[in-house]
Design a binder for these strands. Sequence first.
RNA 1: GCGCCUGUAGCUCAGUGGAUAGAGCGUCGGACUCCGGAUCCGAAUGUGGAGGUUCGAGUCCUCUCAGGCGCGCCA
Length: 550
Amino acid sequence: MSINEEIISMLKKTVLSATTTGRIPDVGLLDIQIDYPKRQEYGNLSTNIAFLIAKKISTSPYLVAQIIIESMEKIEGLISRVEIAGGGFINFWVSKERLYKVLKEIEETNESYGTSNIGQGEKVLIDFVSANPTGPLHVGHGRGADYGDILANILAFCGYKVTREYYINDVGTQMRTLGESLKARYLQLLGQDVQLPENGYKGEYMVEIARTLHRQERDTCRNEEVGFFTNFAKESILEDIRKTLIDFGIQYDSWFSEKELYDSNQVDEVIDSLKKLGFTYESEGALWLKTTAFGDEKDRVLIRQNGEYTYFAGDIAYHKNKYDRGYDVLINAWGTDHHGYIKRLEAAMSALGYPANNLVFLLCQLVSLIRDNQPVSMSTRAGEFVTLSELIKEVGQDVARFFFVMRKMNSHLEFDLNLAKQSSKENPVYYIQYVHARTCSILSRAKEKGLSLNQTADLNLLKLDEELALIFKLASLPQEIINCARFYEPHGLTAYLIELAGIFHNYYQHHRVISANKELSQARLVLVNAVRIVIRNTLTLLGLTAPQRM
RNA sequence: GCGCCUGUAGCUCAGUGGAUAGAGCGUCGGACUCCGGAUCCGAAUGUGGAGGUUCGAGUCCUCUCAGGCGCGCCA
């Protein structure tokens, strides 16, 4: 049990006993909150429980707090001091013994320190990036990629069974346009005077693909159908996307093709089901789904007048397929430009009788790139966007990943290339990674001097305020991770790392780890090692490297 | 016009309805002959606006102003 859990359990017991002895009336269930106070003189943790109770029974929070403290069912070795402050806050100081236990725990659990089991083995499928295979990933996709991957890491750490999936939109008009564009570029290489189609893909990468095709097949493809070119373009682009994601440190468990949904009749089947359920109708030559019956603004088309299926039709089949594969939670990490699409998909799934509340939509706001205080144009049509792989090349994988996840996903991200690159030494990524390198360096230095990590080190020697604050910060990692998982917000971990790094650097600057005092040195080495483990585990969750040297 | 998101320090942004609103960058001034100076210490500047809810509001509600995105038988 974590310290927070122990305190909550202690408070629950206390309230129960105060109720049974009649000192407090029965107030029912309480949502007890444990806070981290902002000021050191308020202790390590605080609770507002007295305010909650006082409100229900209309009395003074201070009085309630007093009663709670007097009837406190103390847990042995957990708390060293309790105080009332600010008119009703109850502040706790965690005992040294409890903190030393955390150090032991970190050492023993090592790579798995910070894990929890709030997921209880629930199966989660997270669909992220899923950019159309019509061009290279750009910077905006990078944010979604980073976010989805880190979220998957965090959920897995919290006991969920996570699958990362990429949904490939490989049917429809855009695919035809893609094939036509490649064919035009290819024929141009053969010296023919051919124009790109009107909404064709103008990017330079299409010329590259045409060159590759020409290199492989010479002029033998000149009479091939568009479908041939579509396929060739799709495969080369997907290969490029896959490679870019690997360069970014991201591996998918599954690549799911929309085309296969059609080929295996799953789209027709799902439309049949919807028809039988009576949620469809025909109008103006098209087939509509009554999404308004489930709160959508207007009904949506499934099959167009010209007989083609909409993207929506395929997506319903896709989500049905995901449920049928046995996933409990379906997470869709999309760009904010898809938000209008959520209602209709929820409506469709409700119509089919699937639990809509297991559908989770997480929207990443857009990214704008800034260079030399000027916005960088990222128009896809003109083919002048900055690709993700260019960004990785320019600022490095770690910096790119950290910058993407540093902000809340529903705020816009301004990615300042100059800041990320030129002032890289002032960069928070390095600030954090430096802690890792430094701890590694201290440990190896200690080893040279014949001081090794020792199970029997006397941790009681760690009694400086800075040391206890540092350990307490290490102790809060599991809870930090749980909070991130619960709200699907990984950016909290970046803040955690910056704070932890600050505390450590400060400590290091003012106190020697390795000194003439052998016992003290050994105790401090245990602390340093614990910092190393926590930093490394958290960096790993964020998809970042933990360098031993820099 | 309607819907979603965002307005917090000079800039980029944190901030479970809780106590004196915090970081980084930038600016200015300092630090051990020492385990890594990619470090540390110190200084300054504040919630777009108006109401409301309550013991308490950056956080919740209403209105308003400003910016972004979306409102296809595109994907």
